[in-house]
Design a protein around this nucleic acid. Structure first.
Lengths: 200, 200, 200, 200
DNA sequence: AATGAATGAGCCTTCATTCAT
DNA sequence: AATGAATGAAGGCTCATTCAT
């Protein structure tokens, strides 16, 4: 049998991307075989190669798309007119929601950097830096206008990102706290980190 | 030739453990072959099986030893008589130093949990919980005696650990800040997270 | 898009034949993929199957066409009225020129016989025998009329063909000797093989 | 099962070489799979890699060993004190006997040069030139001392080698002529090519 | 007549593991 | 306790071929 009626290229590529995302997140890039991805996608392994030239390209593609989507999502969410405190809160909300929706992407984009070959690694690394620049800029703005008392902008940025992203590790839909509650707590924790007085 | 003069069993086991640690940390469990570990150790692959029954056991062994050593190290470092604020500072220092010294163990103990088969997974997970109980207990002590204003002990614990451990990701020996400086910054950040007034 | 404007069926079949010829000669039948032939032709692999039912048919077609063209070319070149010595010289000239022009066909017709499935093999083998009969008949004619002193017609025939065909292995356009010079030398060598006195 | 009692490394390597030789000669390098070689050898495909790092190395090894054995065999057979005519006859006998004994090696050493990667190709090409230098030197010696009347030493050399080697293509043990008879015929043909008077 | 997507088999190679030595 | 050779299963990828479009 060749192509089944009704299947289209773009559709398969998307299904492959999804299957790979799920499996890479669950078991790690190296532990997932092309055959496993194919099985999850509902095609033979060879068919994947009509859409991605190598397994490495597939990972790269996943990571690039994730980072670019993240950056674009922020661009759209960004409200540049906000003062630093409101901007920071806005960013935290955005980051939590976005990363929870895409926990698999987040996970592999942190875990599988080492699985990328050199050149691909650089591309992703640069995109990631772009994203880290977002909270950092807010921190520096708040530091300048006196609304924050930052200890060290660079380290505080990394601390905030690590703290927020760590959430994807343990968050469960039916846990003790609702997402809204968790979000509220994290916002307060971040305010403390940047030395902003709490109103409550 | 069987055994090379001067090599003893325990010595080889240790060299294997070291090689595996290094390689797992660099490339991930699934991406590292027994042959690669053997090559790094200076023996043939078959020889590893005189010391570890399977690759999975080797990983398990590494993680158990790491977690147990960490717990034992804390037991020795622990100064139960300290008040909560001093105890927290003590813990932060301990955690940073210990984790920086063993960044490879830390890394794989976070990354390769998923590579563990079910039973082994449980063992490590329990040990990890034991360690997380340490800062959590300090937080709760400080909350009770009024020296901290904790928002949520559970989340704050996870936040602190994520924040501190994240450091292993970007710390470089010759970076902008010395280890002492970084440590001092992190201590201040942690104090903020627990709502402790800064003396300085 | 289906067919590109300006391309016609017969045209594509010819381009495929040419590409296959080139690639089979360079790398061998088994080492050349239909995709490679398609790429060289400027179409997708599937398109080849509109012109040749299988890869094996393509090879067969190439060899049959080559042998038939060769035989037909000889039929046209043949000058039956020539005496044996002149006929032999005529044949040598013909063989060298023809084989040099079609070195790729010659090469694969000698190399890829083994890649042919049984039935196809027989067809080509028979055509080849027909061609070998040409010099052999000349030799026997010359032997009978006393102009040659043949040691053994069969072996001498094979020796002449091997000798002449070997040329395609090392001949280079810009070598030490021109084609005319090489031809002259080979004619003299062949005359020696058949025991014909040299006039020069 | 690991190793079967009684099997040794060198033994297996030799069996692999033999199987590969046979199969490469019969079907060509590209058409023969490692599995096929393994099956013929009586091991699993993976076992071959204990002896040869890649399929390409296996081919290269086969060709190098063949050419070196050939050169060494000639060194031992060579009788430098012989006059050119006797030396040539000696060489022809040697070449025919040796090439008939090793027709598979001869065949692939001519056919599979193109299957060698560049560097490997160079090694074999050089060895081959060394061998071609042998008859050429004899021809030049005989030309100088007047026992031969060579038309062109280079081309005559190639012609002789092509003629003799072509024999491996059609020789059958139970053919019309015995090996001794064929040999005698070829010696006479070669003498004609070098312009030596026949005594008989 | 051509494309693009798919299949199912097969390829070279590597792997965890075993075992005679 | 180590080597070296082997197994059997898999892994990434390619291939000849098919077929809906």
């Amino acid at each position: 049998m060749a192509r089944r009626a009704g299947s289209s290229g773009a559709e398969t590529a998307e299904k492959v991307r999804n299957a790979a995302l799920e499996l890479f997140a669950r078991s790690g890039y190296a532990a997932v075989s092309m055959r496993a991805i194919a099985a999850e996608t509902g095609v033979q392994a060879g068919a994947i190669y009509n859409h991605f030239p190598t397994k490495q390209h597939l990972l790269h593609d996943l990571l690039v798309v994730h980072m670019e989507t993240l950056l674009k999502a922020w661009e759209e969410a960004d409200q540049p007119e906000l003062e630093a405190p409101a901007a920071l809160e806005h960013f935290v909300r955005f980051h939590i929601r976005y990363h929870l929706d895409r926990s698999r992407e987040v996970f592999i984009s942190y875990m599988e950097l080492r699985s990328l070959e050199d050149e691909n690694f650089g591309v992703i690394e640069r995109l990631r830096r772009s994203y880290e620049a977002v909270p950092r800029a807010i921190l520096e703005r708040g530091a300048k206008d006196g609304s924050f008392t930052i200890i060290d902008p660079q380290i505080t940025t990394m601390a905030i990102i690590a703290m927020l992203t760590g959430m994807t590790t343990w968050y469960r839909e039916n846990g003790r706290l609702s997402l809204d509650e968790i979000e509220a707590i994290y916002i307060r924790l971040v305010k403390r980190l940047v030395g902003q007085k709490e109103e409550d």
